[in-house]
């Protein structure tokens, strides 16, 4: 289980995320919802160790991992798919995925990409030899998720995987996330503005407003609470 306890995260002197408690149970998809600029990405960066915590703690299966560096988080089994996807445009799709296979400070990469990754994302297998930069936006997002999966994570953090992607691909990604949870037992923490995706895949949701959790519950509870209209509508 991944859990934040009273975390405060920011940049320099300014605080963006205030006293947030988020919990991702085993085999669960948890969504953090909110408009632009409410601190969703900052929350993920803080959990991942990319931003220092100004207060509070992060726990993984009961262990305090608040001060771990990003590569140590990866070694602990926490995979991260950033909003920018950050794929390597100049190397092949296959090598992009292989680069994700590091565990801790191991220097050698896996020789082959596990077949199950291509089963989730068959389009990547077809383009295995193509350069990463030639993929469409949706395929790049799939590649970023595939790369994170190749490290055999227990938890996956996804930052707005639907951004800039056509609806059919967004739906496909949502379905794959559910399969990844069900078949691989990977817990997912996803931050999203796309309500359709988030409410369709999540087992539990948190609504963020100006850096604070203002609502939480199952997707049905969130929809019934009026939070969608109050905090998430444009």
């Amino acid at each position: 289980m991944l859990r934040t306890s009273d975390v405060q995260i920011g940049y320099g002197e300014s605080t963006v995320v205030w006293n947030v408690d988020v919990k991702v149970e085993t085999d669960q998809i948890v969504a953090v919802l909110g408009r632009n600029g409410v601190g969703k990405t900052t929350l993920l960066r803080g959990i991942m160790g990319l931003n220092d915590l100004q207060g509070g703690h992060v726990f993984l299966d009961g262990e305090n991992i608040s001060t771990l560096k990003p590569f140590e988080m990866a070694a602990k089994g926490v995979g991260y798919v950033p909003q920018s996807r950050d794929i390597f445009g100049a190397i092949s799709v296959e090598n992009n995925i292989r680069l994700g296979s590091a565990s801790g400070d191991q220097l050698l990469l896996k020789r082959e990409v596990p077949e199950y990754i291509y089963e989730y994302f068959p389009a990547l297998k077809e383009k295995a030899d193509a350069k990463g930069g030639t993929l469409s936006g949706g395929q790049k997002q799939q590649l970023a998720i595939a790369r994170a999966l190749n490290a055999d994570p227990s938890h996956l953090l996804l930052d707005e995987p639907s951004e800039g992607i056509q609806p059919s691909i967004v739906h496909e990604i949502g379905e794959q996330l559910k399969r990844i949870r069900d078949n691989r037992g990977i817990s997912v923490l996803i931050v999203e503005q796309n309500l359709n995706l988030a409410l369709a895949v999540a087992d539990y949701c948190y609504v963020l407003e100006t850096g604070r959790v203002v609502e939480q519950g199952t997707p049905e509870e969130i929809e019934a609470s009026g939070a969608v209209e109050e905090y998430l509508s444009v």
Partner: peptide, 8 residues
Amino acid sequence: RTEFFGYD
């Protein structure tokens, strides 16, 4: 980016 892949 390389760091959150797990590389020190």
